[in-house]
């Protein structure tokens, strides 16, 4: 098991956001983390990345308990994060964004640029001059350059034009086919479910359902996803 999250409870100051979340991601697996807005998806990701550490419960990644680690240490173990909202470093070029935090491994500049050719065309351009879709590609590329064992994508296609969204989904499919372990939060279930190996639904800070996408009934969707 690459990632195992067991009964984590996370707080923002005195406010409890997670009340017991369980999920696991196996090597090469794509797990979809689902739920309506405000149900704890991003907080779960923040807990896994040690940005908002859980007060109770355990997160074991690649055989190591993440308790006590700082976020950069968790990242060095192999957890790559593409945060919500196309977070690039605006005053750096595309190339600088990619290489500054790169770590050795299968993903290098050439490979990332072959996944997203637009980034290669705009290598010397400042990140804040890119379109929203290109910035998202850059955010994914930057995470890949750290050669993560597990890549976490938080709303990677949100707010993008349909054409760009298709490009991002095509890239996610290529990553999965290449054996990359993925934990994906996204509202586009029509794209996400066909490639997911497992789904976890969160409701009010708890994981309420875990199973294969094929077992996700219409009732469950109505009840927890509001679709």
């Amino acid at each position: 098991m690459m990632l195992k999250v067991s009964q984590i409870e996370t707080y923002y100051g005195p406010s409890q956001a997670l009340f017991g979340v369980d999920l696991s991601v196996d090597t090469g697996e794509l797990v979809a983390l689902m739920g309506r807005n405000g149900m704890g998806k991003s907080t779960t990701i923040r807990s896994i990345c040690r940005l908002t550490p859980a007060k109770r419960g355990h997160i074991v990644f690649d055989g190591q308990d993440l308790a006590g680690l700082r976020s950069f240490q968790a990242a060095r173990l192999g957890i790559g994060l593409v945060p919500e909202g196309r977070r690039c470093f605006a005053s750096l070029t595309v190339q600088e964004n990619l290489i500054a935090t790169a770590r050795p491994g299968v993903w290098d500049y050439t490979k990332v640029v072959s996944l997203f050719p637009r980034l290669g065309e705009r290598a010397g351009q400042m990140a804040d001059t890119l379109s929203g879709g290109e910035q998202q590609m850059l955010a994914i590329g930057r995470a890949l350059m750290t050669n993560p064992k597990l890549l976490i994508l938080d709303e990677a296609t949100e707010g993008l034009a349909p054409v760009i969204r298709q490009e991002i989904w095509a890239a996610i499919r290529r990553l999965k086919d290449a054996g990359q372990s993925l934990l994906v939060v996204d509202k586009t279930l029509s794209e996400l479910l066909p490639i997911a190996d497992a789904c976890v639904i969160l409701e009010k800070g708890r994981s309420v359902w875990t199973g294969r996408p094929s077992a996700l009934s219409g009732d469950l969707r109505d009840q927890y996803l509001g679709v």
Partner: peptide
Amino acid sequence: AALTMARLNDIRLATSG
């Protein structure tokens, strides 16, 4: 480049390891 990242957003830099 990493220094610029630390100035712009050190949390985002940390999540890159």
